[in-house]
Design a protein around this nucleic acid. Structure first.
Lengths: 220, 220
DNA sequence: CTCTCTATCTTGACAGCGTCAAGATTATCT
DNA sequence: AGATAATCTTGACGCTGTCAAGATAGAGAG
């Protein structure tokens, strides 16, 4: 569960135990510690001071790397987007020239990411992007993910999977459908009765089926 | 803008100016003041103490009516859901026996509610419902809204507007599509370039069109 | 009308929070 | 080696959610 590669990111490389005045890798550590708190204690327990303490530094140390709390959250959101991006890239490679499979697999991965990391998912799309200028890395990775989806939509159109011809509209529509479903589930809006009869994945595949002209199966 | 009916809710009925030890209508006042803060200063400025101050009572007065901050937020979410419910009811009545119109109009109203009250929208669907047992009123109104959507979906199916036959699945799918689109827009996830070429309403209608077998126009 | 009970509200306190200023420490570059 | 800049600590500020104790007032019983 606690593999070494993650550990190496959490602590400075040279000497893990000996406490030094200069941490050596504090910025990344803070991001990873923040995500860890998110996973273990939830979004309500995420405070700058706790992140600092768990990283082994004083309460004001983060301000050497982040302008304020929002900046740390933006960095965590960037990390979330990056994880999605890496998974998407992998899927595109594995299912090259199979756009429908790419669409279904990336959608399922999006769902899984949300179910596995509910609070990181929330933060990833929490809208820190508002002040675009302040977080260029976040804006960039967001656009890269959208570009991937847009590309998939375009290829699906070429295979006649969709009626529509506008790739931007189609990409937004697909993203919204998947994102909305995941959001509703994570926020406990879907009644227990409905969820008892329909797994999240089934709900997702149903939604995708509604939008495509062909039959979409789990393919699993 | 500041009509009398709302004002009557904000302050005790008997005497508006004279300060009394017992407020008289504090519970509702706190909810409305909270929503007002949400609209004017945003979700980050919403604190129990500020709500209390703006309502003219001491900082601990709210605890006579709400167990904690989450309870007040749950009440505000209930108010948000109630506003949506009332609008939905009105639409259903006006467009009786026109299920497709009901679907499009309620979807547009959902979008408008989000665009007009971004932070109230966020709170309304923020997932306070998690601990279902604690907020029965919120669960109830949530289910009533879902029931409305389910009913509309059912009637649309009867008219052959959708392929699918499962009303629950269809309702969740439609809700997710609309909710996701509004969420993405409110959280600044849709790039400015895409938004420049496509209004929120256009995006919504496109998504609905993707799901139906018939052409959906604005009808406005 | 008065007494009692209970709901409502105030005051005061506490720890935890985000943030800033001042100073200490260490890495980096000339 | 010495200067400069980056990094981290310490201490302080006001704000927050929450609780305990007490003040006030409305409601019902006699």
């Amino acid at each position: 569960m606690l593999n070494l590669s993650k550990y190496a990111v959490l602590y400075p490389v040279k000497n893990m135990k000996q406490k030094k005045y200069h941490h050596g890798n504090l910025k990344n550590t803070l991001i990873q510690v923040g995500i860890k708190i998110l996973a273990e204690e939830g979004i309500g327990a995420l405070s700058l001071r706790k992140v600092a303490k768990n990283a082994g530094v004083s309460h004001a140390a983060p301000y050497a790397h982040f302008k304020d709390k929002r900046a740390l959250i933006a960095a965590m959101a960037t990390e979330g987007h990056t994880r999605i991006y890496e998974k998407n890239s992998e899927i595109i490679e594995v299912f090259a020239d199979m756009p429908l499979q790419q669409l279904v697999k990336t959608a399922c991965a999006y769902l899984d990411f949300g179910m596995d990391n509910p609070d990181l998912f929330r933060i990833t799309f929490s809208g820190v992007v508002e002040r675009e200028r302040d977080y260029p890395a976040l804006v960039e990775i967001t656009q890269k993910n959208f570009e991937i989806l847009r590309e998939i939509a375009l290829r699906c159109q070429a295979e006649g999977i969709f009626d529509a011809d506008d790739a931007d509209l189609l990409a937004v529509s697909l993203w919204g459908t998947v994102h909305g479903l995941v959001s509703l589930i994570l926020q406990g809006q879907i009644s227990g009765e409905v969820l008892a009869h329909n797994s999240p994945r089934k709900l997702l595949l149903f939604s995708l089926n509604q939008m495509t002209r062909v039959e979409v199966g789990a393919g699993l």
